[in-house]
Amino acid sequence: MLSHVGSDNQPRMVDVGAKAATQRVARAQARVLLPADVAAQLREAGHMTPKGPVLTTANLAGVMGAKATPQLIPLCHPLMLQRCHVDITVEDNEIVIVCEVACHGITGVEMEALTGASIAALTVYDMCKAMSHDIVIRDVRLLHKSGGKRDVDAGTGRS
């Protein structure tokens, strides 16, 4: 049976009351592919647009997104995050966003990490869309999770 579906086939929040609190960590990634001319314009402008500093704004948006996950994803538990770090690098025409989230709790932080990376990527799109609508957000995925019933690392999906 699916954990988020009750016997009546209706969605429900999972009861995590009996789980032991552990240190939970999750890391997720999103990639933003820019057209070559947009990437060149951003490099020349020090990653500034008329809306402001793209990477700095995306970083803050990623943290805010991770913290807001329970308001965005209906069945997510509210968590007291201990840490949220968004790392943004530029590789040629691509912006690579990695969001790592940690808490000591009874449920995992994968959704917070995925939401943080996604919101940061959407912010890059928003700040650059005046230059082009041919921007592609791709490869939003979980890279790592630990502290729960099983740990997962990228590519394997295994403990």
Score class of each variant (00 low, 15 high):
residue 21 A to E: 13
residue 111 M to V: 13
residue 4 H to P: 09
residue 93 N to F: 13
residue 81 L to T: 04
residue 100 E to P: 10
residue 81 L to N: 05
residue 102 A to C: 04
residue 132 S to Q: 08
residue 6 G to M: 01
residue 156 T to D: 12
residue 143 L to T: 00
residue 40 A to D: 04
residue 152 V to N: 03
residue 75 L to M: 11
residue 23 Q to A: 09
residue 118 S to P: 07
residue 92 D to I: 08
residue 58 A to Q: 08
residue 98 V to W: 01
residue 102 A to E: 06
residue 139 D to V: 12
residue 11 P to M: 11
residue 149 K to I: 03
residue 73 I to P: 02
residue 111 M to N: 03
residue 48 M to V: 07
residue 125 Y to Q: 01
residue 125 Y to S: 01
residue 38 V to I: 09
residue 154 A to M: 10
residue 7 S to R: 07
residue 84 C to T: 12
residue 18 A to K: 09
residue 23 Q to I: 05
residue 22 T to M: 01
residue 128 C to G: 03
residue 23 Q to W: 06
residue 67 K to H: 11
residue 71 Q to H: 14
residue 36 A to S: 12
residue 147 G to I: 08
residue 51 K to I: 02
residue 82 Q to K: 07
residue 8 D to V: 00
residue 73 I to S: 01
residue 38 V to L: 13
residue 102 A to N: 01
residue 29 Q to G: 02
residue 58 A to N: 07
residue 87 D to Q: 14
residue 33 L to Y: 03
residue 147 G to W: 05
residue 15 D to R: 15
residue 13 M to R: 15
residue 122 L to H: 13
residue 12 R to V: 05
residue 32 V to Q: 03
residue 81 L to H: 05
residue 36 A to Y: 08
residue 76 C to T: 00
residue 27 R to Q: 12
residue 72 L to A: 02
residue 66 A to M: 08
residue 54 V to S: 12
residue 13 M to H: 07
residue 144 H to T: 02
residue 134 D to L: 08
residue 63 V to R: 03
residue 9 N to G: 03
residue 73 I to D: 00
residue 21 A to C: 15
residue 3 S to C: 11
residue 84 C to L: 09
residue 96 V to F: 06
residue 71 Q to C: 06
residue 78 P to N: 06
residue 4 H to N: 09
residue 156 T to Q: 13
residue 19 K to F: 09
residue 20 A to L: 01
residue 41 Q to S: 07
residue 70 P to V: 11
residue 43 R to A: 14
residue 3 S to K: 01
residue 62 G to H: 00
residue 91 E to D: 15
residue 121 A to Q: 07
residue 104 H to E: 10
residue 117 A to T: 10
residue 19 K to R: 15
residue 53 P to K: 04
residue 114 L to T: 10
residue 95 I to R: 01
residue 126 D to A: 05
residue 114 L to I: 09
residue 38 V to T: 13
residue 80 M to S: 08
residue 148 G to N: 05
residue 35 P to Y: 13
residue 141 R to S: 10
residue 120 A to L: 03
